Amino acid sequence: MGTREALASDDAPLVTAKHGTAAGQSDTVVASAVTINRPAAELYAFWRDFANLATFMENVERVDALDDTRSRWVVKAPAGKTVEWVSRVTEEAADRLIAWEAEADAEVPNSGRVEFRDAGARGTVVTATIAYDPPAGFIGKVVAKMFQREPAIQARRDLRRFKQLMETGEIATSARTLKQLEEQD
């Protein structure tokens, strides 16, 4: 199994690896971490309300709660497309951990976990680990990377935006981003 260890900075992926699944397919695993100057309980509560995830996850259009453990995800994909799936919470420990898995018919099979670990006076270390099977295999992954939709890049950016939102109440945007948003309206 090939593993790439990254620099120990908060916004670098911790690990990117390939591993085989029971079905013989190959998933990509991405893990990123960030330290946020807020208590774990506050971060956990915000994250656990899955509708909040669209406020800082750039490619998530929306997450609709279906019940206490299932939610429907609508996510942007390359070429103006979207993909959808239903995820189910598979493990949960209040203020510490949320793990999930997409249901069997998902357009993008995925699973993952987010952990909230006390960092003392620094706040909380939030670690997100995602395993996914990119659409169209290797070709889909290359196309996604070209359009900046590759999950290793997005996980790092999304965690940085989560940090900004939780520490300052807003997400900083560049003048270029604001202009692009205005042009879309």
Rank of each mutant, 00 (worst) to 15 (best):
D10K: 00
V60W: 02
R62V: 09
T69S: 14
E183Q: 15
A51Q: 10
V126D: 04
T55I: 12
A106G: 03
M166F: 08
A155H: 07
V30H: 00
F138P: 10
H19T: 04
K141T: 10
A152P: 06
A22E: 05
Q148D: 12
A121L: 03
K141R: 13
E42Q: 14
D118Q: 06
G120W: 01
E91R: 14
F138T: 15
A104I: 03
S71R: 13
K76F: 10
A121E: 13
E183W: 13
G20P: 12
R157I: 01
A155Q: 11
E167T: 06
F56R: 04
V34T: 02
I130K: 02
R4Y: 01
V83A: 14
Q184K: 15
R72I: 05
E150V: 07
N59R: 12
R149T: 08
T90L: 05
V126R: 03
A136L: 15
A77E: 09
S71A: 14
G137P: 01
V60N: 07
D68R: 10
G140P: 02
L181N: 09
A65T: 06
M57A: 12
I36N: 06
W85P: 09
I153T: 04
K76A: 15
W47S: 13
R157P: 00
E150N: 07
T129V: 06
A175K: 14
A12L: 01
A65I: 02
A175H: 09
T129K: 04
A17Y: 03
T55N: 14
T3Q: 14
A172L: 11
D49W: 11
R48L: 06
T35C: 00
D185A: 13
M1R: 10
D64R: 14
P13N: 04
L7N: 03
T124S: 05
F116E: 14
F116V: 07
A22I: 04
S71H: 14
F56T: 04
R72Q: 13
P13G: 03
K163N: 02
V34M: 00
A172W: 07
A119D: 12
F116T: 07
A136H: 12
L53K: 15
E91M: 08
